[in-house]
Amino acid sequence: MATISTTSSSEAQQESGVVRSFLRKYREQSLIFYLLIVVAVAATIFIPSFRTGSNARNIFVQSVSLGFVSIGQTFVMISGGFDLSVGSVISLASCLTSGIIDGRLEYLVPVMLLVIIIGGSVGLLNGVLISKLHFAPFIATFASMSLVQGVTYLYTKYPPGSMPSAFSYFANGTIAFIPFPLILLVLVLAAAAYVLARRKYGRYVYSVGSNLEFSRLSGINTAKVLIITYVISSLLAVVTAFFLTSRMGIGDPNIGSDVEINSITAAFLGGTVNGRGSVLCTYAGVLTLGMIANILNMLNVSSYWQMALRGAILVAVVLRGIKTV
């Protein structure tokens, strides 16, 4: 529907509220916020144990691991693709970190750097396969997922090594009573939102996702944009791995299973499609999923049912159709 918006021009000048402009700009995506509020309110009313402060804190802390990954997945999905390899990258990063360090504090920083580079190269591989070799995104990341998972299992079949106790700060430390990982998440969220809204690269991610061909014709280096995007996704997966490894004190080759599904679901819930999306809305999706899991746990619903439900949510969200073109 083509509309010559003559009146909204003056509207645009008048409106001042940040929230209002945000809601207007992301009208479709912000539906998730309403869902989030509804679920939260319903839970507060009907489930007594939900209302405690520590439970709320719990939900937020739990949301961190999915949160980091989903931010990366959002970038990828806005660019028109999907990253199925994040789960396996988390597994590999977690095992390598814990396995190589094996309790020795002096290895901590170099190994973390090494793992970051390894994780980044997976993203690089994905980006190159997709932009230069013209793989479909899900094929490329499906293949790299298998590859990385294979390497992980080759390295170890069981949780390897251990982490020095100092490292547990990553997951458990607090700054002024606020959990450190939460602060990190907020920072990453803010940075991601800033990049997507204000930096040239960020706008190009939307452009590439909206129409790859036209973007290329307009002079954008689409290969560079795509590669950077997938590297970001993998790096955030590594950050997630650090968080999870810190929390458990040890790595785990299976820790990344289901992460891809969940991050894609969260992003879809936040209204992410190719060419459109917002990391804030995705995070609302993350919180919603977290809250639902929290509620179901309180109601003693088995994890198997929860798994089935998560798959059903993905299919349901996607059922209303994905924007084509």
Binding site: Y206, S207, F214, S218, G219
Partner: peptide, 18 residues
């Protein structure tokens, strides 16, 4: 026209040239 559908008018006018 070769405009990027999800970008707004200003962004399309200055694409690559921001």
């Amino acid at each position: 026209p070769r405009l990027i559908p999800d970008l707004d008018v200003a962004e399309n006018v200055f694409i690559g040239n921001e």
